[in-house]
Amino acid sequence: MSTNASTATATRKLTIARAMAEATAQEMRADPRVFVMGEDVGPLGGVFGNTRGLFDEFGPDRVRDTPISETAFIGAAVGAASDGMRPIVELMFVDFFGVCMDAIYNLMAKNTYFSGGKVKVPMVLMTSTGGGYSDAGQHSQCLYGTFAHLPGMKVVVPSNAFDAKGLMTAAIRDDNPVVFMYHKALQGMGWLGTEKGATVPVPEESYSVEIGRAAVVREGHDVTLVSLGVGVHHCLRAAKALEEEGFSAEVVDLRSLVPLDRDTVRASVARTGRLIVVDEDYHSYGVSGEIIASVAEHAGCRLKAAPKRVAYPDIPIPFAPTMEQWALPNADKVVAAFHQMMRES
């Protein structure tokens, strides 16, 4: 990417949906092995907009609407990837993994290992996550921990359009299966409330964001706020609120769960001495526990206060807005967690 070009395009803002589609189109132009399949990815352009325009440019062979048969078409993606193609498949809502997880975790994630590294499975499984719009508990989950827990697949979760484009490019070029989890509240769809902070300047040129590198998106010295996806925006708002109270919060955007950039998290906590993890996935056995354990088990760990997490309670996600909004993480809860941490220490 040339400096001139990036300067020239620095003002062009894209939604995550547009950024994903642009990265996909660029890779499809450059590499005939790349193709897309999934439910409603063709003329409709994806229920969440991330394949918009691809069908018109590349046609029905390379942008394939599938039957509602996730077991078959995700299994087919594994077979096509093993045969030299680079498929991108969409699992429309991550909640639907229950009908097809075998193809994902027993085939996609294990064929490389069970072949002693001789069979590569270069595919991208993109899937929407998250709630906040009263779609209830079969269409609102994040399940980050579920996927990151199972070995053999990389997992990325962008919080903004710049990272989304670069991570999508990196995912398509990766020789391994990559699960690309995009949060619905960041997509920029008119009919879903969209976090404005996710729509950022995106260069027109193709570029990669390295999978496995977290980003310090705000520097600070009193507390480290670690999150991913929409949670990063809660943390940035909380950091702003804390700044008005005279506290300085550092915000780490994980961007990738597998591989997990523990070094960046530990280095930040080493500077601040305090850790709060914010995750819209379930509280127990998930990302928040893993981050805290990764810091706590490290020999260099020196904390000024017990770490805290702001996560989704261990309940199915309710429909009624009053209940759902009460249960979701938000900036106020992050600020409250910090206040409690300061009282306790």
Binding site: T71, A72, F73, I74, G75, A76, A77, V78, G79, A80, A81, S82, D83, G84, M85, P87, D102, A103, N106, L107
Partner: peptide, 12 residues
Amino acid sequence: EGLGPAVGAALS
């Protein structure tokens, strides 16, 4: 389990 991958290899 092998059915989907066979379909995908044929598609490839």
